[in-house]
Write a protein that binds this DNA or RNA. Structure first.
Lengths: 331, 331
DNA sequence: TTGTAGGCGTTATCAG
DNA sequence: CTGATAACGCCTACAA
């Protein structure tokens, strides 16, 4: 690998001059600039970023922390973040945290040593103390960490309300909820939205809410329990699409026809919902846009660290597909 | 951030000594070692990796090039690569190349400037010249690049043969093939496997092979065309799971019952195949293991650059699910 | 067993 | 307009 010295020697100038033409700083006679340019081309010289980073103390690198890239929600997010990073000439590091505080800490420590510039993080575990300690620009995504960290989220509460309203409107008379993990903020918000819509209903009982993890298998079990206890449920709102898919699978096994006997609405709008049979009606998040917004916010923070904290909230949108159907009015 | 100098000062030794205890090099009196250790703890000192990398010329960083992380095959792969990287204390960089040669080149250039240590690459476009030029350890994954690059693959040809044999065995009398892109090596191998099994059959016609991209939508169109032209097809082998899912969706629209009227077998074993209705019979790849093997091979290359080229081939395995059914013998 | 000094490749400052 | 030179933080001969 050629270094700046080689270029300087070949062009018969000092390294300082080469550096100047490289960065477009200071004055350089156009003729010497030419000579340098030629030398650079000649040697196929590329500046060493590591040396640069050492000098500057930053690395033009950002990381994305997700619980698990295999969860279908995250690839689209990762894609968005990577696209922007690439466009802005940042290197993109991906970390799977498994929502494990210890793993998060390790990653952060390792990356700090590499002068990481910033971090987009999806986490329900990461605590303020840690982040503050590392003193690095952060944007929280999907789930708010704590006051004082810029974040990008969606209107979980209202989205959930809308989902339930929709189920009511198409004629559901008894609507259950598959709730997500208690320690995940957005899951609680969605449950809150559901509750606010059904609490006053005469048919409501607390046993219509079934708790579980954010996964397919668990949701299948939950759904089965739910339908055994309440065979007359005709509407189901799942806290995320994965759970909704689990519900669909469970109903397939139980011989319950969707949407005729039971209408199901999910949350997230992941691709998976398009390929099930029936395909899944869902409250879709603009996942790609969320990711884009998050990095852009992050890069702003990096450029101007004492920018005021920004919070952006996206709106979810009802996407009607095959898992719900409007009941015929029986007047 | 505390530096090695701060530690040296506090421990009343030279930076050389601190460096020695840090790296376990050379002799250091156990007592001074203690003092240094205390100072390190005291200052919460962490060595600056950028400076280290500058000195050493390597960065403890590896990258994974995939066409698009949103393609359901890749998250599992990425997870595997990242897991090993993390375990071996490498930083993991993810790049979406869109199978675009120019993008690949840009990434490679940028990463080379950052002293990338090695690269796992899934690509049908990347050409030998480029890689050689950058002179960096590489492991090709899923699709072989060219002779002389270590690679990890699966037995595409035999796997495809097995899929077709299986369809025959369960009683299919006319088996079509949804072939993948012509410029993707593994797609051609799978087509080859199919051909070798059907060429001799009296019912075979070349129009039973329908070409298309590796995506759902295209496959829906191809399937529809295929079934219009040959309504009597009772078996279908798709070059990958995504296409198979497309085929299932198309049949749903066409009112063709799967598996009763048509048995479908995919290739890859992605999670998506579990959630369709019916669920997808497929030739499953050990995706996670493949990823693991690739990085491990890469790290070996990094440690010992003039190791002999290694090629590893994994076996695909038939996973029977709902999209195929054994026909009753009519004797 | 420990310290000194030079260098990894760049950039910014300060003279000239 | 250009060239020395001192950092950035760390590591490894070479001396002592």
């Amino acid at each position: 690998m050629a270094t700046i010295k080689d270029v300087a020697k070949l062009a018969q100038v000092s390294t300082a001059t080469v550096s100047r033409v490289l960065n477009g700083n200071g004055y350089v006679h156009s003729e010497t600039k030419q000579r340098v340019a030629v030398a650079i081309k000649e040697l196929n010289y590329r500046p060493n970023d590591v040396a640069r980073n050492l000098f500057k103390g930053r690395s033009k690198t950002i990381a994305l922390f997700v619980p698990d890239i295999m969860n279908p929600y995250f690839p689209e997010l990762a894609r968005a973040v990577e696209d922007v990073a690439q466009k802005e000439e940042y290197t993109f590091i991906l970390c799977n945290t498994d929502d494990d505080l210890e793993k998060e800490r390790k990653y952060l420590e390792a990356l700090t040593q590499k002068s990481l510039d910033g971090l987009v993080i999806v986490s329900s575990t990461m605590i303020s103390e840690y982040i503050k300690e590392f003193n690095i620009p952060v944007v929280a995504l999907d789930r708010i960490l704590y006051e004082g960290v810029p974040s990008v989220t969606v209107n979980n509460f209202e989205g959930a309300q809308e989902a339930v309203k929709y189920l009511k409107e198409i004629g559901c008379k008894k609507i259950a909820h598959l709730a997500g993990p208690q320690d995940v903020r957005n899951a609680e918000q969605r449950r809150g939205g559901y509750m606010s819509e059904v609490e006053q209903e005469s048919w409501f009982q607390s046993s219509l809410v079934e708790r579980g993890g954010y996964g397919i298998e668990e949701a299948m079990a939950s759904t089965t329990r739910l339908l055994k206890a309440h065979p007359d449920i005709d509407g189901l709102f799942a806290a995320n699409d994965l759970m909704a898919v689990g519900a669909i699978k469970a109903c397939e096994t139980l011989g319950i026809n969707i949407p005729d006997q039971l209408s199901i609405v999910g949350f997230d709008g992941i691709m998976l919902g398009k390929t099930t049979s029936p395909s899944l009606t869902t409250m879709a998040q603009p996942i790609y846009d969320i990711g884009t917004a998050a990095v852009e916010m992050l890069i702003q923070q990096i450029r101007d660290p004492d920018l005021l904290i920004d919070m952006k909230e996206f709106q979810v949108k009802l996407v009607e597909r095959g898992s719900t159907i409007r009941k015929e009015e029986v007047t």
